[in-house]
Simulated assay, not measured.
Amino acid sequence: MDLRVTCIKKNNSQLAHERIQFIGGVDAEGVRWKISVEEAIEGIAVGKWRFYAHVGGYPFWVVVAISSLGQKYLKTDHDGEQPVNLLSIRECPPEK
């Protein structure tokens, strides 16, 4: 299933590959979703989901990368080592 990432939830980490905790969006049926980065990485690995994001008017696939410290994280296929495109997406609205 392809899902568009329209928001993220950040934490206060100084390491860019650790700053995103959750990604979220709205599915094809209009249902809001939000999942942890760990869950997204697992879903990508098993072929459950493919994620993409529109940044600057252009679509980019979200991919799993591995930091120099060996940690898996999410970034777009257009980013270098840092997940600049994902970090530029707005914060997810607070849950009610």
Rank of each mutant, 00 (worst) to 15 (best):
Gly24Pro: 06
Tyr73Leu: 03
Asp2Trp: 14
Ile89Met: 05
Val62Trp: 02
Lys10Asn: 00
Phe22Lys: 04
Asn85Thr: 12
Gly25Gln: 02
Gly25Phe: 02
Ser36Pro: 08
Gln82Tyr: 13
Gly47Cys: 04
Phe22His: 04
Val31Met: 13
Ala45Val: 08
Leu69Tyr: 13
Gly80Thr: 06
Tyr58His: 12
Ile35Arg: 03
Val37Gln: 05
Glu91Arg: 03
Thr6Arg: 13
Lys48Trp: 13
Asp27Val: 11
Ile89Leu: 15
Ala53Trp: 01
Glu91Asp: 09
Ser68Tyr: 13
Glu81Pro: 10
Val64Met: 01
Gly30Val: 11
Gly56Val: 03
Ser13Gln: 13
Gly25Thr: 11
Ser67Glu: 08
Ile66Phe: 00
Val46Glu: 06
Ile23Leu: 13
Lys34Ile: 10
Arg19Phe: 12
Ile8Ser: 01
Leu3Gly: 04
Val31Ala: 14
Asn11Met: 04
Glu39Trp: 00
Pro93His: 04
Pro94Glu: 15
Ile8Tyr: 04
Asp2Glu: 15
Trp49Asp: 11
Ser88Thr: 15
Glu81Val: 15
Asp77Cys: 05
Ala53His: 00
Gly80His: 02
Val5Glu: 02
Tyr73Ile: 02
His78Gly: 13
Thr76Pro: 09
Thr76Met: 10
Lys34Glu: 06
Gln21Thr: 07
Arg50Tyr: 12
Glu18Gln: 14
Gly57Met: 10
Lys34Gly: 11
Lys34Asp: 01
